[in-house]
Design a protein around this nucleic acid. Structure first.
Lengths: 238, 238
DNA sequence: TCTTGTCCTGCGGGAACCCGCAAATTTTGC
DNA sequence: GCAAAATTTGCGGGTTCCCGCAGGACAAGA
């Protein structure tokens, strides 16, 4: 059994290495990659079936790397090990996990014990192991108390990229008015109307404010934006 | 001689601890804090004169912690040790350095040797030690080839918070038109007019696009936004 | 079949934005 | 002290955004 570690911080990498060896005595080979790109290459070359990987790396982030790995071998078991439980990351991971694949998501702040349990659960028992904090984010989106639906999230991303209503309508094959409707839903869900202090009504540019709130609440983050931007440019703008 | 370490990642904290002991044999006490808030408190209680600290921590980030520390004792020597060289961080640090204070800025990706040199340089020799990558960012802002002036940056932040032109005019005590002028400068500096593919002219909402580009280029980041938002709410909205 | 609910669509108007033009004001350099 | 340069301000317009209103399309359920 072999395990591939994809993590750009050398300290965390060596910590992981040790944790893997301790948790999985049946593992006879631990490989390392220091960014998403080389992670992809190694996974392909070595036919890795067990990967533990960081999100947010330079060169290529964990979500994209995981997507290409899974595209080639959907039965690869991947344990994500991340600093944050931003909604944007959680949503990003959920979007790319293939039907029936087994994966895990644990935070770097978790104890050694939690990490080891996750390693055994995912790699040996084919369980999906998701930390409580992360799970909380996932739930909130389904029970749509405050969470955004996928449709709303996509509109949010397009707006955040700086597209006009018309451009979004074209991309999404909707009428102008429909786009604006979805925007209004978004504005309500994000409490955009709340005013700071006693100022007059027209204090906020709603479109911009919605994105600001989304960033502050970590519904959106920089790496999600980068992904969307790349996608936009590849699709030639329409 | 005592050194205070402020860093939330336990691995990095212990690594720093070791590095400090190795680089500074004359140091007889190494203290640790695990977030910005407790860092402030410890610095005050222990009258720390040598601090090495992470930016981007939960609870209170390094920039705010450093500001309050320097407000109380401007001769404190602070070495910032950060993952990123985002323009937003560099600018944030530069904004709060008191006249004549000595500080350093090294990246976590730097070698052990670089870190040790910085520790000795800042704490023993009262030099300012700034990594090359970080220095590069600073330069670009002064030689305003592409960098933003402070005025432009402030407008950018207000826009990113979601304020309307009118609201910004009021806050900054300018006329509506002046705000719009500054916005136009911003649009040019950020190459907002560049169009993806062959689409029609009106593809972008300039105001939103400017913020998107700023985020992608790391001129702005989430923590700078959080700071600005807090400031906005404190000032009661005007 | 008729109702109910949800979503998409068009119309219209008020507000906000983007910006060219030109005069007034401040800053800068010598 | 004075001219050049940069900033600020007002005016006017075209465009986009925000949204209430109302009509149509489609699915679920009585």
């Amino acid at each position: 059994m072999r395990v591939l570690i994809v993590e750009d911080d050398p300290l965390h990498r060596s910590y992981l290495n040790e944790a893997v060896r301790a948790a999985l005595p049946e593992c006879d080979m631990v490989l390392e990659a220091e960014n998403g790109l080389s992670g992809e290459l190694q996974a392909r070359k070595l036919r890795a079936e067990h990967v533990v990987m960081d999100l947010q790396m330079s060169e290529r982030n964990g979500i994209e790397a995981a997507r290409t790995i899974w595209r080639e071998r959907p039965d690869t078991k991947i344990l994500f090990w991340s600093n944050y439980s931003d909604e944007a990351y959680v949503r990003g991971v959920a979007r790319i996990v293939p039907e029936g694949a087994t994966y895990g998501y644990v935070l770097k702040s978790a104890s050694d014990e939690r990490l080891k349990l996750a390693l055994r659960g995912v790699f040996m028992e084919s369980q999906c192991v998701i930390d409580r904090e992360v799970r909380g984010i996932q739930q909130r989106n389904l029970g749509n108390a405050h969470g955004l639906s996928d449709a709303e999230y996509e509109i949010l991303v397009d707006v955040a990229l700086g597209l006009t209503d018309k451009a979004i309508a074209q991309r999404k094959k909707l009428s102008l008015r429909s786009v604006q409707n979805r925007l209004q839903q978004l504005y309500e869900k994000l409490d955009v109307y709340e005013v700071p202090g006693e100022g007059p009504e027209g204090w906020y540019n709603l479109r911009m404010r919605a994105v600001a709130v989304a960033l502050l609440r970590k519904v959106l983050n920089a790496s999600a934006l980068e992904r969307a931007e790349r996608e936009l440019r590849n699709s030639g703008g329409n």
